[in-house]
């Protein structure tokens, strides 16, 4: 399994967070906790006003704060992102809701438009947090990878808690980093085998820790979770693996 370990990356690299505010210091902690090497925070607050909240974060790693907003104009903001934040070279960009100026998700969309232009149509991974799930479709064509609806996350966690505490524990383990969902390449010797064969073959990670095969990625790179033991791996482009332990 040594070759598998070499294929999945560790750490977050450099990240850009747009519409950041001191109230979201928890995000900084979470990113640093997962190994973010460098953070660029962009917000509307004056730099002096956020310095106090960033002291602890800066002790843990590189954190740069820039004051700017898409409210200045999409073109101006795009130019700023490209020039001052080097957004095109970031590993990921997180767009937080920007409250206080009209409809929050509309501003997030303008922000994504600016990022898209700053990267000349080749943006890095963009993760957007929205407040209204109905606004999801508005982000089509802007290179957004993931749209996150925090309200649904809270509701879903509590609803699962009402149903099955074991499942809630599993989800919390996924969220808190004890467990990881990773994509591994498909070993050549398994290409003509079934999903059951792959499950029996992939039982540990390169360090010998137990893992669980959750599913696969088909020829179109579509994730297929729990495809069934008889599913052939022919045409599969990767494996979906659950790693880590939670006790």
């Amino acid at each position: 399994m040594a070759e598998l370990a070499a294929t999945h990356g560790e750490g977050l690299g450099r990240l850009v967070v747009v519409n950041w505010a001191p109230e979201a210091i928890g995000l900084v902690r979470a990113l640093q906790g997962l190994g973010a090497a460098s953070l660029v925070l962009i917000g509307t607050h004056a730099a002096a006003a956020v310095e106090a909240s960033l002291v602890a974060a800066r002790a843990r790693g590189s954190v740069e704060y820039l004051a700017a907003s898409v409210g200045d104009g999409v073109e101006v903001f795009a130019e700023f992102l490209g020039r001052a934040a080097s957004v095109a070279t970031a590993g990921s960009v997180i767009v937080l809701p920007h409250r206080g100026r009209g409809e929050t998700d509309a501003f997030s969309r303008l922000t994504c438009t600016a990022i898209h232009r700053a990267c000349r149509g080749q943006p890095p991974r963009i993760v957007v947090a929205v407040e209204d799930p109905e606004a999801t479709h508005e982000f089509a064509g802007l290179g957004v990878t993931t749209i996150f609806y925090p309200g649904f996350l809270r509701a879903a966690l509590l609803a699962h808690a009402c149903l099955d505490l074991g499942v809630l524990r599993f989800m919390l383990a996924l969220l808190r980093g004890g467990l990881r969902v990773q994509s591994w390449p498909l070993p050549p010797e398994l290409r003509e085998r079934s999903f059951r064969d792959a499950c029996l073959a992939v039982e540990t990670d390169p360090e010998g820790r137990p893992v669980t095969l959750l599913g696969l990625f088909d020829a179109e790179r579509t994730m297929v979770v729990n495809p069934g033991p008889g599913r052939s791996l022919a045409g599969a482009t990767g494996l979906l693996v659950l790693t880590g332990q939670d006790t």
């Binding site: 977050l12 990240l15 979201a24 928890g26 995000l27 902690r29 979470a30 990113l31 906790g33 997962l34 973010a36 590993g91 990921s92 997180i94 991974r125 993760v127 947090a129 993931t146 996150f148 925090p150 996350l153 809270r154 966690l157 919390l172 996924l174 969220l175 808190r176 980093g177 990881r180």
Partner: peptide, 10 residues
């Protein structure tokens, strides 16, 4: 947890 979710998604 929401922040953690964002970080993990990245």
């Amino acid at each position: 947890l929401g922040y953690t979710w964002l970080a993990t998604a990245c």
